[in-house]
């Protein structure tokens, strides 16, 4: 082995070793548990079974999985609808403002997730600011409890992950040269035509990245459905939490975790393929 190669191994080994020991092995353990039976007192009985996965298809649990996908899907769409025009405004705005504006948009993302979610409880509860704003506008019915619905959970997720979408879309828009707009206009296209037929298709990799990211982070979320769903909105993250801490059915919780990981990997893979294909088409 050459000096450079052995030095490389020395650099890579500790970090990769840590990830192998505290990420790959534990996830492998979860995969193994998902195939075992639950013990009478909550432990794991080492007898192979596929029951945990069959149980996940039970309408009760399938419903939770579908609710999670629905909430995550709505969050991804809403974040895109809000985020795309914002990213476009930054990318087409004055250059000297682009970095400060991106920083401004990303800043809330770096504050505590629990606090950002809690802020919506303050805004939306019965005595919250939203109800007061309604009263100020002339509403005089009983206070509306806006918390603990699927829509509230979607709002919380959009709020937390919107900066990601803006950043992803901005990244793909800022790669497009100014000349693209000029060329299209010189060739006689009107503004909206330039956008719909040139700019939007070219920014789709950013759109896909942003949407998949929001979906993946949302579908496995625990804190937002827990705090803003208040037990009325069950998502798969809450179900896994319950299996491990309340019901003490670890094998079933492990099976749910694996299903969650499988769904996410499938989506990320599809996104990678789509982006590769789009890039291949440009080169051809």
């Amino acid at each position: 082995m050459t000096f450079a190669a052995s030095r490389n191994l020395l650099f890579l080994a500790p970090g990769l070793g840590w990830l192998a020991l505290f990420l790959l092995v534990p996830v492998g353990l979860v995969a193994a548990y998902s195939l075992f039976e639950r013990g009478v007192y909550g432990g794991v009985v080492h007898e192979l079974t596929a029951d945990n996965f069959v149980r996940a298809a039970d309408p009760l649990y399938l419903g939770v999985l579908l609710t999670s996908a629905k909430v995550a899907g709505f969050a991804a769409i809403a974040a895109l609808l809000l985020g795309y025009p914002a990213a476009y405004a930054i990318a087409r705005g004055p250059r000297r403002l682009q970095t400060p504006l991106l920083f401004l948009v990303m800043l809330p993302f770096w504050s505590n997730y629990l606090i950002r979610t809690y802020a919506w409880i303050v805004l939306l509860n019965k005595e919250g600011l939203a109800n007061q704003a309604l009263r100020a506008l002339g509403y005089d019915g009983p206070a509306i409890d806006m918390l603990y619905t699927e829509a509230t959970v979607v709002v919380g997720l959009v709020y937390n992950y919107l900066p990601f979408v803006i950043l992803a879309v901005y990244a793909s828009l800022s790669r497009l040269p100014d000349e693209l707009w000029e060329a299209s206009e010189d060739l006689g296209a009107r503004g909206h035509n330039t956008f719909l037929r040139i700019i939007l298709p070219l920014s789709l990799p950013g759109v896909a990245a942003g949407a998949v990211f929001v979906f993946v982070l949302s579908i496995g979320n625990f804190v937002t459905p827990d705090l803003l769903g208040g037990g009325k909105v069950q998502m798969v993250g809450n179900l896994i939490y319950d299996q491990f801490l309340t019901a003490r059915d670890w094998p079933f919780g492990a099976a749910l975790s694996l299903i969650l990981i499988a769904v996410m990997m499938l989506l990320l893979f599809a996104q990678a393929v789509a982006v590769n294909r789009a890039q291949g088409a440009h080169r051809a």
């Binding site: 979860v30 993946v216 979320n221 896994i240 919780g253 975790s257």
Partner: peptide, 15 residues
């Protein structure tokens, strides 16, 4: 970076 926090949490607890 992409594994759900709750999954990493239960995996490490199991481990």
């Amino acid at each position: 970076m992409i594994i759900p926090d709750i999954v990493l949490a239960i995996a490490l607890l199991s481990f």
